[in-house]
Design a protein around this nucleic acid. Structure first.
Lengths: 299, 299
DNA sequence: CAGTGGTCTAGACCACAGT
DNA sequence: CTGTGGTCTAGACCACTGC
C-alpha cells in the first residue's frame, strides 16, 4: 500500500492553519490506488516524501505562521499528509537543522525566531583589552598537564601545564556558546602576576581564578590570530551548558592567538548552530545586513 | 521486550573489526531479563541508545579502522548490537554529520578523510586581483531584475538589474563549494567595459560572460568586506552541484563587499559541511594547525 | 544477480510540561 | 491526568553498485 515514492497529494492553500481536522479530501481507511498512481508521472518525481514535506511545511510556516507560534502536533500533521509519523519527523528534523523550527518536549513545535548574529572577533571576546567583558561570562577554571592533542594544538611539549578558562556567551538572555580558552604555562612566563583586588578573603572560586588569568593576559600583545569554523555536535557536557540534548549541531570556532611570533593561546568556541549566525566584521565599514536566508537559490 | 532506555551491553575491545559474526556473547532469540535490568542502575543512564552507539562506533573507527575503509554494513551492525536498524542508523547519521563517516549507496559506509581546510578570504577567491583564479571555476552567468530579498541584501531598489556569476570551488579534485556572486548594475556604472580577447568568435557562453564580469571587477577598489557564517541545507540545484542529496548540511558564507563606502557586491557561498573546515587567516603569522577534532571536551 | 544504503510504515512506550 | 515530542522496534520495498 502506497509504497513507491511519488508526489504527495496536498491542498493548495492554507496547508496547516486549522484547515479542518485531518485531511479534508481523504477519509481514514485503506488507501486507494489513485493515491500512488495519480496522473501518470512516476519517474519524474525522484524526490523523497520527507523532502517534499519539508518544502510544503517551509512555505506554510513562512506564510501562515509567525515567530513563536506552535504548529499542529506531529500526529496531527502526519495524519493530514497521510504519512507515517517517522516520515513527518524527518521533514521536521530538516527544518529544525535549518533553524526554522524549535521542538520542545511536552509543549509542541514552534516557529523559530531568526538567527541572532553574533560578532566573532578579538574585541568582542573581552580579551585582550577587555572592552566588552559582558559578552562572555567566566564559569570555570582549571590547570592541568597538556594531553597529546592539546599539546599539539598549542605547540608545546606534552605534559606542560595548561591553564584553561571555561566561558559562556550570553546573547539576548540566552546561552549561545561555550568556550574553552587554553593558555600554556610558557606563554604566561613573561607576564606579571595578578592578584584579585576584592573578594579574595572568603576563598576565591575557580571563576575568580579564570578572571585573574584573563586580566593577566590583557598585558599580552597579540600580533595575529587565525580562525577556523567547522560543523560539530555537542557532547554531553557542552550540551548541558548550551541547554540542548547531546548531538545538537554546533559551529566550532577554533582561534589561535599569536604573540611575539609564537602561539600564545588557543580558544575553542562552540556556538549553537540552530540559533547563531557568526559574523566576522574585519572592518566597520559595512553594516551587516540581516541575511535573507534562502535568496541564494534565486539563480 | 527490552524497552526502557538503559545501558547497551557491549564487548570491550575489537568492537567491529571481524570480531566474529553476530554478537559473540549473545545468540539470536528472545531477549532475557538481564538485558535491561543488569546490575541495578536505571536512572543513572538517561542517554539514548543511539548516542551510546555513536560513542562506541566513534571509538571503534578511531582505533580499528583507517580512512577509506568500509565498516560492516548496517544490518550486520544492528544485529551485533541488538538494536533495530533504524536505531543504528541514527548513530551513523550523527557520525556522518560530524564528518567521520561517508555513506555510499550500493557500496557501504566508509571512514571519512579528515576535513580539508579551505581558505576563505578575498585573495583566495580570485577576485579582485585574481591571484589564484584556479580555486574558483566559473560555470554560469545571468542578468536579472532583483527580487525583493536580493534587492534588500544589496541595498538597491527592487527591479534593478543584477549580474550573477555562478562559481564552483574545487579542492583536491572534489567540488567543495558553490557560490553566487551578485553585482548590481549601479556598482558597475563607473567601471570600463571589458571585451574578452580570445574565443569571442564562435559565440561566447555564459561562463565567458561571467569571467568578463570578474575581470571588470578587478578594477574595483574594495575597501571593506564583512562575512557571516551559518548552517544551512543544500536545496535541489545546489545539492546537484555539490554532488550530494538534497538536505545535505552546508556552511553558508555570506560576504558583503564595500567600495567607496557603498555595498558593491554580495557573494553567497555554500560549502559542504561534511568535508570542509573554513579557515580565516587574517594574517599569515600563524600556521593553521590541523584541528584536533574533539579536544575541546578535554575540560 | 546479490548486497548495500535510502525510504517508509505502523505501532509501542518513555520523558516531560501543564492541568 | 492528558498531550506533546523523543526513542525504539520489526518489517518492507526501493535505488544504486558491482559482479
Amino acid at each position: 500500500m502506497l509504497r513507491p515514492v511519488t508526489r504527495l497529494n496536498l491542498p493548495e492553500q492554507q496547508v496547516l492553519q486549522d484547515a479542518g481536522r485531518l485531511s479534508p479530501q481523504r477519509r481514514p481507511g485503506p488507501a486507494r490506488v489513485e493515491d500512488t498512481v495519480g496522473t501518470a508521472q512516476l519517474t519524474a518525481v525522484p524526490e523523497p516524501k520527507y523532502w517534499q514535506l519539508r518544502t510544503v511545511l517551509l512555505r506554510a510556516i513562512d506564510t501562515e505562521f509567525s515567530t513563536g507560534q506552535v504548529i499542529p502536533n506531529e500526529r496531527e500533521l502526519a495524519a493530514r499528509f497521510n504519512v507515517a509519523r517517522a516520515t513527518l519527523r524527518q521533514a521536521l528534523d530538516q527544518l529544525e537543522l535549518e533553524g526554522r523550527l524549535v521542538r520542545r518536549r511536552g509543549i509542541g513545535t514552534l516557529v523559530a525566531a531568526p538567527r541572532v548574529g553574533v560578532q566573532v572577533s578579538r574585541q568582542e571576546e573581552g580579551w585582550p583589552g577587555g572592552s566588552r567583558e559582558q559578552a562572555w561570562q567566566t564559569v570555570g577554571f582549571a590547570v592541568a598537564a597538556a594531553g597529546e592533542q592539546l599539546a599539539k594544538a598549542l605547540g608545546v611539549p606534552v605534559g606542560e601545564q595548561v591553564h584553561t578558562v571555561r566561558r559562556l556567551r550570553v546573547e539576548q538572555g540566552k546561552t549561545v556558546a561555550t568556550e574553552a580558552l587554553h593558555v600554556p604555562d610558557s606563554a604566561l612566563a613573561m607576564l606579571p602576576e595578578i592578584r584579585l583586588s576584592g573578594a579574595a578573603g572568603s576563598g576565591a572560586g575557580p571563576e575568580d581564578e579564570g578572571r585573574a588569568l584573563l586580566r593577566r593576559m590583557e598585558r599580552l600583545t597579540v600580533d595575529g590570530e587565525s580562525r577556523s569554523v567547522e560543523l560539530g555536535v555537542a557532547e554531553a557536557d557542552e550540551a548541558l551548558l548550551l541547554q540542548r540534548p547531546p548531538g545538537t549541531p554546533v559551529l566550532v570556532v577554533t582561534t589561535q592567538y599569536a604573540s611575539a611570533g609564537r602561539l600564545a593561546a588557543v580558544a575553542v568556541s562552540t556556538y549553537r548552530a540552530d540559533t547563531c549566525r557568526l559574523t566576522f566584521g574585519e572592518t566597520g565599514l559595512v553594516e551587516v545586513t540581516p541575511v535573507p536566508a534562502d535568496f541564494r537559490t534565486a539563480s
